[in-house]
């Protein structure tokens, strides 16, 4: 199917028989669907008109930006803008709107999750319609739950919660990392289910959960209050106290490791600090990918055996990589959203 026909379809210029053919083509193959979706979005968003700019505003903005002399407001071709915005959609925008949350709606998936569990579980089942909050790589986002509890989501994380919590419990599902500040109510526990087969039960507290599907471990760090951690497969429960950290390695091993820690390193991300404390490179790579929304290819396996210690607050990716280059045997190359690490 060529782009011309698809564009004419998108613009509503086809006959019924032609529409039928396009629809069948889209349904036939996910790759076709993806191509159609891309064209549909491109055409729709390029069709939205931007309101005109007021002259004073332009001058004001430029003066603020330190541009010398008179500004002229005449229009010129803005072809480059299209390129810019295409890139912006993937890189710049998620950063510019740090709170950009994508809200999905009722989801059939949750029903599937529920039927896969028995009713005698320690963790209650959430039947209600749910909202899905998604935070992309390179961004962080804030969610306020229906009870007023707040969650800050780290990059590449999702949180599912209902329109309204049930009377007996508050159930949310987390994939990725979140810092929770739960509104206290001893008779109304909150359950945070994670993709790692572990559920956190709380009644009012501040804690951090890191449960990325592509990480081996699930880590809970408690700042305030009390929490109970439930291993889903065995229903075994573990109490965690403030300034303690509990780590589950893999789904099968039920026995978690608990230790007293300084909580600050675990929650520094919520204040925009990227922290590596003698961290193995595979972990560093994953964090950088999420934090900056890039894909990192390690071209020399010996790099993965290294450890890295550093703290960044508002540094750019290239500043981070430059530091890595100065302090280690690692060299880097950036190509769009791809980063390649090699030995010097």
């Amino acid at each position: 199917m060529n782009d011309d026909i698809l564009i004419r379809y998108i613009q509503g210029k086809l006959s019924e028989a032609e529409r039928e053919a396009v629809v069948a083509w889209i349904e036939e193959d996910p790759a076709n669907r993806a191509r159609f979706e891309r064209l549909q979005l491109d055409d729709t968003f390029s069709g939205l008109q931007l309101p005109e700019l007021s002259e004073e505003e332009a001058v004001e903005r430029l003066a603020a930006a330190g541009w010398p002399g008179e500004a002229s407001g005449r229009r010129v071709a803005v072809r480059w803008l299209r390129i810019l915005t295409r890139v912006a959609a993937i890189l710049l925008i998620p950063l510019a709107v740090a709170g950009a949350l994508v809200i999905g709606k009722k989801n059939a998936e949750i029903a599937r999750l529920n039927t896969a569990m028995t009713a005698e579980r320690v963790v209650p089942i959430q039947e209600d319609a749910s909202w899905l909050y998604t935070v992309n790589s390179g961004v962080k986002g804030d969610v306020t739950l229906p009870d007023g509890s707040r969650v800050r989501l780290n990059s590449a994380s999702t949180l599912r919660c209902p329109d309204r919590f049930a009377a007996e419990s508050r159930v949310v599902e987390l994939s990725g990392e979140g810092f929770f500040e739960v509104v206290g109510n001893p008779d109304w526990p909150m359950y945070v289910k994670t993709a790692k087969g572990v559920t956190v039960k709380v009644t009012g507290t501040k804690f951090n959960v890191s449960a990325y599907e592509n990480d081996t471990a699930m880590k809970l760090t408690l700042v305030e209050g009390n929490v109970t951690v439930i291993h889903d497969a065995t229903d075994r429960q573990y109490a965690v106290r403030p300034n303690e950290e509990m780590v589950f390695y893999g789904q099968d091993k039920a026995a978690p490791v608990k230790k007293e820690v300084d909580v600050q390193p675990a929650i520094a991300w919520k204040d925009g600090i990227l922290l590596f404390e003698n961290m193995p490179m595979p972990e560093v790579v994953k964090r950088l990918e999420r934090w900056y929304g890039v894909f990192i290819t390690v071209q020399d396996p010996s790099i993965m055996a290294m450890n890295f210690t550093a703290s960044f607050e508002s540094e750019s990716l290239s500043q981070v990589l430059q530091l890595l280059r100065i302090t280690s045997q690692i060299d880097y190359r950036i190509d769009g959203r791809q980063v390649f690490l090699s030995r010097k």
Binding site: E57, V59, S72, V78, W80, L81, T85, I93
Partner: peptide
């Protein structure tokens, strides 16, 4: 969200 930035960048460019 990108529309907002696009709008702003096009203003800066035009001025």
């Amino acid at each position: 969200e990108a529309l907002e930035t696009e709008q702003m960048l096009s203003r800066v460019f035009r001025s």
